[in-house]
Computed example of a mutant assay.
Amino acid sequence: MQAVIIAGGKGTRLAPLTHRSPKPMLPLLDRPFLTWMVDRCREAGVTDILMNVQYQAAQIQDYFRDGSDFGVQIRYILETTPLDTAGSMKLAEPYYSGDPLIVFNADILTDLDLKALIRSHLETQADATLTLARVEDPTAFGLVELIDPPDRAGTWSAQAKPIKAFREKPTAEEAAQLGIDTINAGTYILQPELFRDYPADRPLSFERKVFPDLLAQNKRVTGFIWEGYWMDLGTPAKYIQGQLDMLTGQMPCALVKEAIEVKPSAWVANSAQVDDRAQLEGPCFIGAGTFLGPKAHIAAGTIVGAQSLIDCPLAPGCYAPGTLAV
């Protein structure tokens, strides 16, 4: 399979954090979010990655280069003008190998099992497989209505069902009447030929055009329901909450593999220097190369970025982050 990571958005909901950085390069516990996505692809055996870039694209290209340092191959699809959620897929078409495409929105934090998703797509012989998540309040999302096959034998399961319809954001009353709580979770597997008949260099929307077209053409469109962790990191509150969920274990991840849990939910990077008298309240994270002096007090819910100095004495021995004064 090939991966397509859609990473060209401006991230206006995350301003001012995104004024100087593209949204997918914002750090999650000291590492750009995109590194986490690339790692997930590699661990699932997907090493051919096409990355759609636009806003501050050079930051992404300079960081990842050809991907070899990350154990993958990365090629960049530069979107010079906004082409909506699916326009970049048509732009990337010359690079398609013919294998199915696993497509990621670069602002979704999830512990989705990519290998299970790939198996489901192949077993159902779908033209498109959309990952779905359940939400308590569906009024903020467009809903995905599923068909419960009368015969569960064969390709269908409790996790994979055919999609019947896409519905706009409902009112609370409509949501209760519909009894639907499954939403588009932002990860898809698509057959590359689905984009063949769309014009190039024009805006194209997954939600308003591509997915409804598939149903109208009687294509095999499957919903893969993921019952694990899922969060859209598109707002400052969600961006912080996602990181705290990682620290407390609600979002299982390996992003803290280069850190030590010094007390419950309080993680310190291996290269940080923390005075024994410093106070840490979990959940919190202390980034690489950071120095915490004896009077440092890190309150619960704090993420301290790399190379930070907190209560660093102005002494000859304190030359740089990570260097204890003597």
Rank of each mutant, 00 (worst) to 15 (best):
M1I: 07
M1H: 06
I6S: 11
A7F: 09
A7R: 10
A7P: 08
G8D: 14
L17Y: 08
T18V: 13
K23S: 13
L26Q: 10
P27N: 15
R31Q: 14
R40K: 14
E43T: 08
E43P: 02
E43R: 01
G45E: 07
D48V: 03
L50W: 00
N52S: 15
Q61H: 15
D62W: 09
R65A: 11
F70I: 06
V72G: 06
R75H: 12
I77Q: 06
I77F: 05
L78I: 12
P82T: 10
P82G: 12
A92P: 00
P94H: 08
I102W: 00
V103N: 00
R119T: 12
S120Q: 10
H121I: 05
E123A: 15
E123K: 12
Q125N: 07
A126L: 00
L130R: 00
T131F: 01
E136L: 13
T139M: 13
G142S: 14
G142E: 05
L143W: 03
D148I: 07
S157G: 09
P162W: 05
A165F: 10
F166C: 04
P170C: 14
I180M: 13
I183M: 05
I183L: 09
T187L: 04
I189A: 08
L190S: 04
Q191L: 15
Q191C: 05
R196T: 08
D201R: 14
P203H: 09
L204Q: 05
R208W: 14
K209L: 08
P212C: 10
P212K: 07
G223P: 04
M231H: 06
M231A: 03
G234K: 05
G234L: 04
A237R: 04
L244Q: 00
L244F: 04
D245N: 12
G249V: 10
G249S: 10
Q250A: 11
A254I: 11
L255G: 03
L255C: 12
S265T: 15
S265E: 01
S271N: 07
S271Q: 11
S271E: 05
A272W: 00
D275W: 09
D275M: 11
R277C: 13
Q279Y: 09
E281W: 11
C284L: 10
G287K: 00
F291Y: 09
F291G: 01
F291C: 11
K295M: 13
T302H: 12
I303G: 04
I303T: 02
V304C: 03
A306Y: 04
Q307C: 10
C312W: 07
G317H: 12
Y319E: 14
T323H: 11
